[in-house]
Design a protein around this nucleic acid. Structure first.
Length: 573
RNA sequence: GCCCCCGUAGCUCAGUCGGAUAGAGCAACAGAUUCCUAAUCUGUGGGUCGCAGGUUCAAGUCCUGUCGGGGGUACCA
């Protein structure tokens, strides 16, 4: 795939008289590019050859010398202690990267590894009884990025919103509404009114535990199809969905399927039938369970399919939903983007289906993410301690407006650009951390636009757009890159060249933060580049044209990467 | 008790398969704009990679134990 690496492997394996696969396996990248572009550590060879690794490195470098001299891609080979360092022919490497980007255009980075495959991604899936808080952004932003990355790699994607429209939260809402709700106020502006009712219920239930019965009885009536309860519940769900879809509109997130948990509450008989058939289901304390064992054979928490009251469970509903998805979408990969707390739940679901002989269960993955805390405390809707996502977005947008007014008062569509920057800043702050980390939300940090942030990426992109705009004429895709080779140019090219590998890893591990880290690196190198070498004021027109090609490539890859993370890319800011 | 995640600079975090001197950003301080947008760039200070063993030529990275934080552990989802 990379002819430069292929050449190094071929030459060094011949020189060292080693199998090519061994050399490819050992090949590393030196910590500093002044040492070289690739390195072969010789420690492991020392044992076999019974020689000092530095001597081995020297021998290999000597033996490889002539072949390197004859190579158009490789410039030099040198032993440095126990390492054989190889330097690339810079202009050739930059030219190769530019050619690849030129050929593949906007699809550069994709190796089309998802062609012919379908992935279903369950993400965001908010509980509609609660407001859309900053904590919901995690699953939404991470899931959306995973969706876009898969789509870019050629997968057919089905984004599923498995929203919560079922369970105790709704009982609480029904009770609170009927006890204290003001029909007109709720009808006029449901979201904040319902939130207030929800918080009040949880507040009062602490003082008066008997209130729980108010909730439970209504839940029973709902389950029995009581008309009053059903129509109220429907109203709550509709209001919650409208609100969620409004937020998705702001974020630019799209789902291919909306199905609530409640949609799988009634058809779980088939799930139970499946486990009865296999002889796996058994009665225990009135509930129906499947016993599970961990790796050591110890009995762990069982998977409960039906409660002693005869109702469905989180497990049976999720299993029903999963079977439905397999039938409906015939996925090759299924990703659940939920918080870490549900790790055991998914292990149980997967293990239970595995016991039942469902062989495709190994294509299902849980992509967990860490908890979000706020000022050292967990966010809790029940206790009214929460950060409403839209408030954060609004603050980010307003701050951006101020910055634009100060730095670029003549910017046209300033309001639109402020929205793009503010929203992307918040999204970036979320997807830039590795998924499994617990993150502490800090408004101050999200609203700092200096350094490794969303606006930094957008700024770099906008500056590159600006260079191309001022260049005036179309980019010459044939401009000769042989005049390039400045260290700054080489570093940018190396970053560009790493994009396909980064995306492959991001897909494999369902980890969008790899793309975020990549973009910061690319933008950093790109910013250094225009500080170090002149582009528009380059004296030699041939050099200028070649640099413009490089600038255009950076602009394109920045745009692709930011889009994959769900960010927008204004051309001016 | 058992299971999962996390622990790297004052703060927030990177760190592919174990490789050369552990890196960024923020905050602090000092610089760079007659020149492509200073939301940028350059420099300075800042480290017992939680701790202890082990494996290895080589450990932030792998193994065991331990401490600290968070979460989970059959009728919430």
């Amino acid at each position: 795939m990379n002819p430069f690496v292929d050449d190094i492997v071929e030459i060094l394996s011949t020189a060292a008289q080693l199998p090519a696969t061994d050399v490819a396996e050992l090949l590393a990248i030196p910590p500093d590019d002044s040492l070289g572009d690739y390195a072969l550590p010789c420690f492991t060879l020392a044992k076999v050859l019974r020689k000092n690794p530095a001597q081995i490195a020297q021998d290999i470098a000597d033996a490889a010398g002539p072949a390197i001299d004859g190579s158009t891609r490789l410039a030099a080979v040198q032993a440095a202690g126990p390492y054989v360092n190889v330097r690339l022919e810079k202009a050739a490497f930059i030219g190769w990267v530019l050619a690849a980007i030129g050929e593949q255009g906007e699809s550069f980075g994709s190796q089309n590894q998802g062609a012919g495959r379908t992935v279903t991604i369950d993400f965001s899936s908010p509980n509609l009884a609660r407001p859309f808080s900053i904590a919901h952004l995690r699953s939404t932003a991470i899931g959306h990025a995973i969706y876009r990355i898969h789509e870019f790699l050629g997968y057919r994607c089905v984004g599923i919103n498995h929203y919560g429209d079922y369970g105790a939260n709704f009982g609480q809402l029904l009770a609170a509404y009927q006890m204290w709700g003001d029909e007109q106020k709720v009808a006029a502006d449901p979201v904040p009114e319902l939130l207030a009712l929800y918080v009040r219920f949880n507040d009062e239930v602490e003082k008066d535990p008997d209130l729980r019965e108010e909730s439970r009885s209504r839940l029973r009536r709902l389950a029995d199809g009581d008309e009053e309860m059903v129509s109220l519940w429907r109203f709550f769900v509709d209001a919650g969905r409208k609100e969620a879809e409004r937020i998705y509109g702001i974020l630019g997130v799209h789902f291919d399927e909306y199905k609530g948990e409640g949609d799988f509450a009634d058809d779980f008989d088939s799930v139970i039938g499946l486990f009865h058939e296999k002889g796996l289901a058994e009665e225990s304390d009135g509930a129906l369970i499947v016993r599970l064992k961990d790796e050591e054979g110890e009995e762990g928490a069982p998977c409960m399919l039906r409660t002693s009251n005869g109702t469905s469970t989180y497990h049976s509903r999720d299993i029903a939903a999963l079977l439905y998805r397999k039938r409906e979408h015939a996925f090759d990969k299924m990703v659940y983007v939920t918080d870490n707390r549900q790790a055991l739940h998914f292990r149980q679901v997967f293990q239970t289906l595995s016991l039942a002989g469902i062989e495709w269960i190994d294509r299902c993955e849980h992509a967990p993410f860490g908890m979000m805390s706020f000022k050292g405390q967990a966010l809790s809707t029940r206790k009214g301690r929460m950060v409403i996502l839209e408030d954060v977005l609004d603050q980010a947008i307003n701050l951006t407006r101020e910055i634009i007014a100060e730095k670029n008062p003549d910017l046209k569509d300033a309001d639109d650009v402020a929205r793009q920057i503010g929203i992307s800043a918040v999204v970036y702050a979320d997807v830039s951390n590795r998924r499994t980390r617990d993150i502490s939300f800090s408004l101050e940090e999200v609203l700092n636009f200096d350094g490794e942030t969303g606006p930094y990426l957008q700024y770099t992109h906008a500056r590159y757009c600006s260079i191309l705009r001022r260049y005036g004429t179309a980019v010459d895709g044939e401009a000769d890159p042989s005049r390039l080779g400045e260290p700054a140019e080489m570093r940018v090219a190396r970053a560009l060249g790493s994009f396909p590998g980064v995306l492959a890893r991001a897909e494999r591990e369902n980890e969008p933060s790899y793309v975020a880290t990549f973009l910061i690196d690319l933008a950093t190198q790109a910013n250094k580049l225009y500080n170090e070498v002149p582009v528009l004021i380059a004296e030699d027109p041939a050099v200028k044209a070649a640099r413009i090609r490089l600038v255009d490539a950076v602009r394109g890859v920045l745009r692709t990467g930011m889009t994959l993370l769900g960010m927008s890319c204004p051309e001016e800011m």
